[in-house]
Amino acid sequence: MTVGQLRSAHLGLLRDRRVVDHLDPPLRPEPAPERYHTWTLVAAEPAPTRLARLLDARVRPGPYLPGHLHQQQRTLDALQPELLHLASAAGNPLTTPVLAGVFPTGTLDGIGVPDPDLGVLILVNTALLDLLDGVLKTMTAALPHYGTPPLLNGDQAAYVLAEALNAYLYGHGAARPRRLPELSGQRLALVTLMVRRATQFVLAHEVAHLQAGHLVHARRHTALDTPVGALDARAFGWPREHEADRIAAGLMLHTLDGLGPRELDVHEPCLVAALLLVLFLHEITDRLADELGLAVPFADLHPPPVRRIQSLVEHLAGRVRTSRALDLAADVATWLEDQLAEVRTWFRLVDRASA
């Protein structure tokens, strides 16, 4: 049993489901994604132009691009060794080969696919990294405490967030919103750190299931409504899902061991906010999907996101080491909730235009 064999199985799954034939860097440049070149141009087009772009992502999400998936897989490959090291350092090393592989699952949760002869594939939605990056870039560009003056005003931020959520909900893991300009300084450092930490938490949750022996009690569950048709996963039950969240959070908190008080005061709030951001986005996307009449694959395998958030916050509150550890997470949740009314307005306009 080797990780190399799991890579072959992952590639076979991508190929069999007609996502891509390979994850090698493309020999020829792929079409460059549309992007804004300056922050003043973000969402500055006339409203009908912006509306047409949202509608186009719904009806023509586009193909899965090997080059984009290659970059996402490289990101996952870079994150996995640290988690496996942490599992070993915590006294519970994994004896089963594991590989995190990018795949259009349609859900923000990782999907564990065990193979008794190879190990476990952790399938990570192709849309996850794009959504995390887009939401965090928008937030840091719009809020003044990450730099003054803000790079985006409220109307710009609401449209950009609507575009990111629209691509996630309707794009089958292939659609990408128009790319934002590059960030710099504190904003860039925060986004880079939080995307990395949030993605690690998704992987750590699945690793936690293995550490806790949950596969022994798991049952097979098939979702018929993923972007690539029916997919199998394992159902563990809600108590074990909460347990996996707690184990994963503990693994992530161990990455801060050895930091001095000043460093801990900076890094712990970012880490906690990143863990909870995954669940915040899960809650928002599930809520919007329900309002729009869209199916959420594997929705019944996990507790409702609100319950997971409450349970994890209570767990973290007794284990964090700095007084401000939960403050950034609260700011993120408040900002996301404040934007939802305008996001819904854009979605209603798209619905009318497509009727």
Rank of each mutant, 00 (worst) to 15 (best):
306 V>H: 13
134 G>V: 05
279 L>W: 14
311 S>M: 08
334 T>P: 05
275 L>R: 01
109 D>E: 14
160 V>W: 14
110 G>W: 00
16 D>T: 09
34 E>L: 12
105 T>G: 07
94 L>D: 02
253 L>M: 06
278 V>M: 06
162 A>R: 14
200 Q>P: 02
140 T>M: 04
269 P>G: 03
47 A>F: 03
97 P>D: 12
271 L>F: 01
11 L>W: 00
90 A>E: 11
98 V>Y: 07
103 F>H: 06
257 D>P: 01
337 E>G: 04
27 L>Q: 08
315 H>K: 03
129 L>S: 12
217 H>M: 10
332 V>W: 13
105 T>D: 05
278 V>I: 07
201 F>A: 08
204 A>V: 00
95 T>Q: 05
24 D>K: 11
94 L>M: 15
78 A>R: 06
48 P>I: 08
310 Q>G: 15
254 H>L: 07
214 H>T: 04
236 F>R: 06
13 L>T: 09
20 V>P: 02
183 L>Q: 05
19 V>D: 02
316 L>D: 09
144 P>Q: 00
347 F>C: 02
140 T>V: 07
318 G>E: 00
141 A>Y: 03
6 L>A: 14
256 L>N: 14
272 V>A: 01
86 L>A: 14
47 A>E: 14
27 L>D: 12
85 H>V: 02
114 P>R: 08
100 A>P: 04
326 L>V: 14
90 A>Q: 10
304 P>H: 10
252 M>V: 01
340 L>G: 09
75 T>Y: 03
354 S>K: 11
66 P>M: 09
45 E>G: 03
14 L>G: 09
42 V>W: 15
299 A>W: 04
321 R>Q: 02
44 A>P: 01
277 L>R: 09
254 H>E: 09
306 V>K: 09
210 L>W: 12
270 C>D: 02
219 R>C: 04
354 S>N: 10
259 L>C: 15
302 H>A: 11
214 H>W: 02
106 G>Q: 10
79 L>C: 05
122 I>F: 01
140 T>Q: 06
61 P>H: 15
270 C>L: 14
88 S>T: 09
